[in-house]
Design a protein around this nucleic acid. Structure first.
Length: 360
DNA sequence: AATGCGGGGCG
DNA sequence: CGCCCAGCATT
């Protein structure tokens, strides 16, 4: 086996090089077959990075493939209707990402002639692109020496430098950015950046880190502490409030379901959902709101959907409209949805679940 | 049931 | 600035 530069240096007693250790680990064990690592373009890297915000690689992969089939380049994406983009995003969550993605594509098409800028500052001016995502695009798409600080990298650096505070704390986050910059190599920036994410995802995992295989362990303060999983510190926790909502599954005689588009701000922004009824008398409510006459209504079982900041207990109520009150739907933002011939619209996960309950 | 995960927007 | 918000998968 070929002896790495790093191990030679170690034997010579030379100063430990963080990036050299990380890069030689990457050469042996890093991921090189992720979809966005093939035929690297700024657009593909950009889309993957937005999808990877708050979302794990294994979840993203099928979405990325579907997305690239439909929108192979930034001009396709810019020309698409937003609903089509949201549709392909259904199930990924944080739907503001999809709206920003679409906005950014239009911006790139119109103001950058279809080419992504390569400076971190310009990238950060795009909606949905912050410091870390901009750094990732610089490093991975353009092989530039820019730091990233995503969840994986935060964990690796917190452990290596023995930072026991919670990285959500701004001061601590700034400290980690400083470390991230200090560790950057001048060359192989793309591989290094991928390597740091791989280390965090494959070895330096949250609860059961595999320190045996880690190229950094001998200098890692968390490893030396004997309890690496105690780093980084955890978020101070608070109990989530519980909210309740009634969602109406209103079915016409064709078996179609009434959907209502959510306002673009707030929960499920821009997605299509079921009408929300806070009142007890839903027959009156539907008459007043939609001019629909309800024939029969049945409460389905309550289930819980949890957001970052609250639990939502959802009670679906299934109702049928009488055939007379059919086609009086002039409001914008209302559609009859045919579950057997689904339209290209974005649906939140719990709504998909309810629609499936109805079908099955 | 609890935890983790980047960026935007507001006051 | 500091604080709040958002939806999944995983544990």
């Amino acid at each position: 086996m070929k002896e790495g530069v790093n191990s030679i240096k170690k034997k010579r007693g030379e100063k430990f090089s963080f990036s050299t250790a990380v890069l030689s680990w990457f050469d042996r064990h890093g991921r090189k077959d992720l979809p966005w690592q093939q035929s690297v373009t700024a657009y593909r890297v950009y889309v993957s990075e937005i999808m990877l915000q708050q979302t794990q690689v294994s979840t993203v992969i099928p979405y990325f493939h579907r997305f690239m089939e439909v929108f192979p380049d930034v001009n396709c994406l810019a020309a698409a209707p937003l609903d089509h983009v949201l549709h392909l995003w259904t199930g990924l969550g944080y739907y503001a990402r999809a709206r920003n993605l679409h906005k950014t594509a239009q911006l790139i098409a119109a103001q950058y002639r279809g080419f992504f800028p390569s400076s971190s500052e310009q990238l950060q001016s795009l909606p949905g692109v912050g410091r870390s995502t901009a750094g990732a695009i610089c490093a991975i798409a353009f092989n530039q020496a820019e730091p990233i600080l995503d969840g994986n990298v935060k964990r690796v650096l917190s452990r290596f430098y023995g930072v026991s505070d919670w990285p959500g704390n701004k001061k601590i986050e700034e400290k980690l950015w400083t470390y991230a910059k200090a560790c950057l190599p001048l060359f192989r920036c793309r591989d290094y950046t991928q390597a740091m994410m791989d280390l965090g995802a494959l070895l330096c995992t949250r609860t059961q880190p595999h320190c045996e295989g880690c190229p950094l362990k001998l200098s890692c303060l968390a490893f030396q502490s004997g309890e690496p999983a105690r780093f980084p510190g955890t978020k101070p926790k608070k109990t989530l409030p519980v909210r309740q909502v009634n969602l109406l599954v209103i079915e016409n005689e064709k078996g179609e379901i009434l959907l209502q588009q959510r306002p673009s701000m707030g929960i499920w922004g821009g997605l299509w959902s079921l009408p929300e009824c806070e009142e007890n008398d839903l027959v009156m409510w539907c008459q007043k709101k939609f001019n629909l006459a309800i024939k029969q209504a049945k409460e389905l079982s309550v289930f819980r959907h949890t957001f970052s900041h609250f639990h939502l207990d959802i009670k679906p109520i299934r109702a049928k409209v009488s055939s007379q009150a059919l086609c009086v739907m002039e409001d914008q933002g209302l559609i009859w949805y045919d579950a057997n011939a689904p339209q290209s619209v974005g649906l939140p996960k719990p709504i998909c679940r309810i629609l499936k309950m109805i079908e099955g």
